[in-house]
Design a protein around this nucleic acid. Structure first.
Lengths: 333, 333
DNA sequence: TTACCCCTGGCGGATTTCCGCAGGCCAGAA
DNA sequence: TTCTGGCCTGCGGAAATCCGCCAGGGGTAA
């Protein structure tokens, strides 16, 4: 486990690392540390792949329950009809194939923590039972008649704002307030691009037999510039794939094309913003300039054929004609 | 004088070099070589700084008159009231201060060539006299009574299309036809960017005591990308300035900012075209995308103040509000 | 408390834009 | 020679856009 000083902020507990130097994540680590003595329910909000599971582990292992079980449940991955029994167990003979009693995941987490990922996908019919379990701190197995005490700390994760689901009647408001005692928003990777170099280095080191290889400057810039729609999971997978094929220093050419090449749309937006902000052009001037150039390009490609040019541009011939007249672009201007 | 093989085309005559590897210039050199035995009047057309004077020298020194005088006249640089006497001389007592007779530049060019630069600036009142001299092959000094024979080859240069001036009555049609026997259009440097590396190397070598220094790749790319509105003259001056201050290899940081940094407008146009061509977006989608982003940027800069944002964008508040509604951009989306 | 300035929303009129329709022309195929 | 398909132009109606006007609210200074 590498420990880095000065500008970095690495908390390593129980071989779990939250690697960051960005302010958004530092703030979250601070909040987690400040409630480590607490038993409060925590709701982690963030996009797929941002590392909610890792954060949940960190929370558990820095809490007073760190020596006790930590049960992770991906709710979205469980078949809906098995969900109840998986979570709460079932009594003997509860249904045809229930030849024996079964402990649920909540029982297994007794005295420890349970992490319910994708709580936004939780069936609303089970929400009332979950709420009862949380409030009474005991559960009734499916088909059972005996209340079984459970002492668990609840950590949940959602990829959307549960308030929206509450407003749409898809999530119980009372359950929401119960699990949202401490909300933590995990930012997407594109909002903490400053962490990308650390994470890249971390995963390259993780997957390389000889320690993290060096990265060319332009390759690093491309990695930082990329928006990482798949967040840390995508970054991790990308680094794993790179270490399989790259030799020595990581070059720009070692990166997959969607990272290596700047997205044309992003490039355009950046250029337009820069032109508008620096080029002293008004909104209309920028839009007009864009339209003119797109039209010119299409006419060139269509060798002056206006009908074809209109089709290229995805507009009506009449519309193109009107624009040609408006901008005084009669021929292949 | 360096001679380069293979891909290059360097004609060196009498310590004059036309350095090029681009097709447009090669074509011109071929035309010049093919008329070297001719005495035809040549009209060079091209922007300021493209090297018309150098081309004129080359023409003279590859012609049969190469051993005879070559007189260069920048017509725009001469005071209009002295123009006639400079070109055609004057007799003794032609005017108060004319204490002696004076040969004009045409006489000095006898048996050789005369190069009249900026012929587009030539006063229309002198155009008839010039025409008479060219047709009769003799001249009358200002205030003189004796016809003096002159045998000169005429090379003229213009930075505009003289036909336009003829159409507007600013240039005599008969004179135009007389001097336009062989028109040669010298392309601007931006239309033969392939020559930039050669020219950069040439001038760096010219101005460096220790031979041409090496250039970093990104610096060379910036030099090629630059549009060189001042053409070769600007390139020459830039290289001279660089060799004064740069040490060793020429880096991107050694270049002046207008070359080092890509012009925002050009960048935008390039990016927009690429986005449209590669990004599989329709005209409307591109325009919409641009508008949304410009609006978002303005709102961000105005911290949500729509009146301010409208002013930033240079549009009416009502217009901005209509667009916000159209694009469903309610808050700082 | 009052006055002033600025922002925002609602709304409607004028102008611009989009585009469909009809007709003519041209080139190529039957 | 006729027919067909495509392109282009003129033109007018519907829809969209631009923006001015009015009213209300909030903040600040006198």
């Amino acid at each position: 486990m590498r420990e880095i000083r000065c500008a970095l902020h690495v908390q390593s507990v129980h071989s779990i690392s939250l690697i960051t130097q960005s302010e958004p994540m530092r703030s979250i680590v601070s909040q987690i540390d400040s409630i480590s003595a607490s038993d409060s329910s925590i709701l982690l909000i963030g996009e797929t792949g941002v590392g909610k599971e890792l954060v949940a582990e960190y929370i558990h292992h820095t809490s007073v329950r760190s020596g006790n079980p930590f049960i992770k449940v991906g709710l979205a991955a469980l078949p809906p009809d098995l969900l109840e029994t998986e979570l709460f167990g079932h009594a003997k003979g509860a249904y045809t194939s229930a030849v024996g009693e079964k402990k649920g995941l909540f029982e297994l987490a007794h005295t420890g923590s349970i992490f319910l990922d994708d709580i936004d996908d939780f069936p609303i019919l089970l929400q009332s039972k979950l709420l009862r379990v949380l409030e009474s701190r005991e559960l009734m197995r499916v088909g059972g008649t005996v209340a079984i005490p459970v002492d668990v700390r609840l950590i949940t994760a959602s990829k959307v704002d549960l308030k929206d689901l509450v407003n749409r009647g898809l999530f119980r408001a009372d359950l929401f307030y119960r699990i949202n005692v401490v909300p933590l928003v995990i930012p997407p990777l594109r909002e903490r691009a400053g962490d990308v170099p650390l994470l890249v280095n971390h995963f390259l080191g993780r997957f390389s037999a000889n320690g993290a290889p060096e990265i060319a400057d332009d390759a690093l810039r491309a990695l930082v510039r990329y928006s990482w729609p798949g967040n840390i999971r995508e970054l991790r997978n990308t680094m794993q794939r790179i270490t399989l094929f790259a030799r020595g220093k990581i070059a720009l050419s070692d990166l997959p094309p969607e990272i290596r090449e700047e997205n044309p749309l992003e490039l355009m937006i950046k250029a337009c913003n820069r032109c508008f902000a620096e080029g002293k052009m008004s909104f209309d001037e920028v839009v007009t300039c864009l339209e003119k150039n797109l039209i010119r390009g299409a006419l060139k490609e269509a060798t002056g054929n206006r009908s074809h040019a209109a089709r290229i541009l995805g507009m009506n011939l009449s519309t193109l004609r009107d624009k040609l007249k408006k901008y005084n672009l009669p021929d292949e201007a």
